[in-house]
Simulated assay, not measured.
Amino acid sequence: MRRIAIAALPVLAAACTAIPAPDAPPAPVATTRAEVVQPLPAPTPTPRATPNGPSTFLFDGQLTQGGWIRGTAPGGTVSARLGDAPLELDPQGRFFAAFDRDAEPSAELIATLADGRTIRSPVAVSPRAWNIEHINVARTPGGGMTDAFWRIREPELNAIEAARQANSDTDGWTQDFAWPVTGRISGRFGSQRVYRGEPASYHSGLDIAPGAGTPFVAPADGVVTLAAHDPFSLEGKLIVIDHGAGLNSAFLHASQIFVNVGDRVSQGDRIGLVGATGRATGPHLHWSLKWREARLDPLLFLGPMP
């Protein structure tokens, strides 16, 4: 990848299935059980300057909506952020950040140095033409989520949120990601239906349909922070892997899971089998990626399908 140097200026998973979910909630199901790691409060470290490094930000990546950025902060940086989002710097001053599906066309990297100076580097974020389907019918009216279903759904959502907020000691974010499985792509990130001007939720991941029972693997190193061996009501059997620096993966609808919470996985390790558990129209792997609260396009992390 090409490294980009920008001169310093003075003073710087709702999980989706292969088709949009209907408005009416599903019939209540039995209470589910899952292993989940509870994130510990992040310690407040004493600010420490990064080692000697570049005089400004160096970075590369997929600088587009749903994309990502990796780079190195200026030498002497004690804290850095992308807009209002703090960045985690490793001992070499390296960082990872990303752009939500609906990110604005411009962003800014900001570093505060040990000597009190601030360095700012603008980042252009290119827009994308999403697959938007306009349907000239009104959305099917729904009765909302019942109290009985919410009693099941709320702990599931809390477990997913806790797993995606975990901050593990892993540097999977530094790797070039590998395909978790290969096969027909049955759903793309960002696609959306609009019913007479009323938008439905967009598809938040990448769906790959290689056939039921096909093994899938970890796309990068990480730590398992959720393993729902008993299927969740919508996601089915679910795995969440923390890749570090705020980046995490979720894998939905598995027929079988081979990992448990706390397991360290390496890129290429087999972690489950493709299935159709939860709310799914057929066997497929739904893979979603998030950085903090930003939802990302897995295709932008991958090379061509082998």
Rank of each mutant, 00 (worst) to 15 (best):
residue 171 D to E: 02
residue 112 T to E: 10
residue 120 R to P: 02
residue 114 A to V: 12
residue 177 F to K: 04
residue 158 N to T: 12
residue 141 P to A: 04
residue 173 W to V: 01
residue 159 A to L: 01
residue 164 R to I: 02
residue 108 E to K: 10
residue 166 A to M: 01
residue 129 A to K: 10
residue 134 H to K: 13
residue 147 D to Y: 07
residue 148 A to Y: 10
residue 132 I to F: 05
residue 126 S to A: 14
residue 124 A to I: 10
residue 174 T to P: 01
residue 118 T to H: 13
residue 174 T to Y: 02
residue 118 T to K: 15
residue 153 R to G: 08
residue 145 M to I: 15
residue 131 N to E: 11
residue 129 A to F: 03
residue 135 I to E: 11
residue 114 A to Q: 14
residue 135 I to P: 03
residue 150 W to F: 15
residue 154 E to I: 06
residue 122 P to G: 03
residue 149 F to K: 07
residue 168 S to R: 12
residue 110 I to Y: 04
residue 128 R to G: 05
residue 166 A to V: 08
residue 141 P to L: 02
residue 114 A to E: 15
residue 127 P to A: 04
residue 133 E to H: 14
residue 145 M to T: 15
residue 123 V to S: 07
residue 132 I to H: 06
residue 126 S to C: 00
residue 128 R to K: 11
residue 117 R to E: 11
residue 145 M to Y: 15
residue 114 A to C: 05
residue 142 G to D: 10
residue 108 E to Q: 11
residue 162 A to D: 03
residue 125 V to H: 00
residue 148 A to I: 13
residue 112 T to H: 05
residue 139 R to T: 11
residue 170 T to Y: 00
residue 124 A to P: 03
residue 165 Q to V: 03
residue 130 W to K: 04
residue 168 S to T: 11
residue 121 S to Y: 02
residue 164 R to K: 09
residue 128 R to E: 10
residue 139 R to A: 14
residue 154 E to A: 15
residue 109 L to K: 02
residue 154 E to H: 14
residue 161 E to T: 11
residue 125 V to C: 01
residue 116 G to P: 07
residue 149 F to I: 05
residue 111 A to Y: 05
residue 114 A to R: 12
residue 164 R to W: 00
residue 136 N to Y: 11
residue 125 V to T: 02
residue 126 S to H: 13
residue 118 T to P: 00
residue 130 W to Y: 10
residue 125 V to W: 01
residue 158 N to Y: 08
residue 169 D to N: 10
residue 144 G to Y: 08
residue 124 A to N: 12
residue 133 E to M: 12
residue 114 A to Y: 05
residue 115 D to F: 06
residue 154 E to M: 08
residue 134 H to L: 08
residue 123 V to R: 06
residue 142 G to P: 10
residue 152 I to W: 07
residue 131 N to G: 05
residue 148 A to K: 13
residue 145 M to C: 11
residue 136 N to H: 13
residue 160 I to C: 04
residue 173 W to E: 04
residue 144 G to S: 09
residue 150 W to S: 14
residue 114 A to T: 10
residue 108 E to H: 08
residue 162 A to I: 00
residue 177 F to H: 03
residue 113 L to M: 04
residue 163 A to V: 09
residue 120 R to I: 04
residue 113 L to N: 04
residue 162 A to Y: 00
residue 155 P to R: 06
residue 116 G to Y: 08
residue 163 A to D: 12
residue 123 V to K: 08
residue 153 R to D: 14
residue 116 G to H: 09
residue 121 S to F: 03
residue 125 V to G: 02
residue 171 D to Y: 01
residue 109 L to Q: 07
residue 143 G to V: 08
residue 159 A to Q: 09
residue 157 L to I: 15
residue 173 W to H: 00
residue 168 S to Y: 04
residue 152 I to C: 09
residue 167 N to M: 00
residue 140 T to E: 13
residue 159 A to M: 05
residue 156 E to Q: 14
residue 133 E to V: 15
residue 117 R to V: 10
residue 151 R to T: 14
residue 163 A to K: 09
residue 171 D to R: 08
